[in-house]
């Protein structure tokens, strides 16, 4: 066969794959949007359809997502607080402004690092767990079993996870704010020769409600992203145990990417 023909075929093959990938991505995005819509529908209309969203699974999920993540969130947000303080003092020292370090640390913790690190941790812990659980249920026909029993899988499995995530992620973020700021103070106060009390006063004066809400709003968005990405990947599992593993990995990568990119877009829209 002529070389030109082969090249042409490769080119069309490339276009074909590109088209399929794009279609797949659009379809997945559409599925994600439909999922959020359907979840809201069940949350509001579930009682009327005689399929109430029950409190017990929401609480169980909230314990798993929120309380289970407390130790690791505490450790990492504390570490990041101290790290920010060290870097802040080092860089501000270059032009003799290290006394202003509290401003930088407080702002970056509350507005950026606390929601971001909490989101990434929860995506790794609970987003992946959600994807793996749904994926296993799917290949085990448990999702089909729910459907044929007349129980909506979205109402039964997705809504509790979404609600729990929406409640717990901002709570965890708030906790990460406190721990991060406290840990930063442990380093800053002695370095600047002041006390923890003076540091705390400064933080309270500097951080406005607006900054807190900025961080918490983002964590709310992250909660939706983590849940939806986990569910979409879990629900699209095919190919047995290997498929579950592949989609679980994919859900973590997608969720973290979505979190970081959404964070940037949010900041771009809100802060300028």
């Amino acid at each position: 066969m002529a070389d030109g023909g082969t090249g042409q075929h490769q080119f069309f093959g490339f276009l074909d794959r590109l088209g399929r990938r794009t279609m797949g991505g659009v379809a997945e995005f559409g599925f994600a949007c439909a999922l959020v819509g359907e979840s809201l529908y069940w949350l509001v209309m579930g009682g009327k359809r005689r399929q109430r969203v029950r409190l017990a699974p929401v609480v169980a999920q909230a314990m798993e997502i929120g309380i289970g993540a407390l130790p690791i969130v505490t450790v990492l947000s504390g570490t990041i607080g101290i790290m920010l303080a060290i870097q802040g003092i080092y860089s501000l020292k270059l032009f003799g402004a290290e006394s202003r370090v509290t401003l930088g640390v407080a702002m970056s913790t509350v507005r950026e690092f606390a929601p971001l690190i909490t989101g990434i941790l929860v995506a790794g812990r609970s987003g992946s767990a959600l994807a793996a659980r749904l994926g296993t249920m799917r290949i085990n026909q448990e999702i089909d079993a729910l459907t044929v029993m007349g129980i909506s899988p979205v109402r039964f499995l997705v809504v509790p996870a979404l609600v729990a995530m929406l409640v717990m992620l901002p709570c965890l973020t708030l906790w990460a704010d406190l721990v991060g700021l406290f840990a930063a103070g442990l380093y800053i106060a002695p370095q600047l020769g002041s006390s923890m009390g003076a540091y705390a006063d400064e933080v309270v004066n500097l951080v406005k409600l607006n900054d807190m809400l900025h961080g918490l709003a983002k964590s709310g968005i992250f909660a939706v992203l983590i849940t939806v990405v986990g569910v979409v990947n879990g629900a699209s599992v095919t190919g047995g145990a290997e498929g579950v593993g592949r989609m679980t990995t994919r859900s973590v990568v997608h969720a973290i990417s979505a979190i970081v990119i959404t964070d940037m877009i949010f900041v771009f829209m809100v802060t300028r």
């Binding site: 085990n140 026909q141 448990e142 089909d144 079993a145 044929v148 029993m149 007349g150």
Partner: peptide
């Protein structure tokens, strides 16, 4: 669906 029952091949128990 409340008037039909299904027993799946693998059981599909939760």
């Amino acid at each position: 669906r409340t008037r039909t029952g299904v027993a799946f091949q693998s059981g599909a128990l939760f």
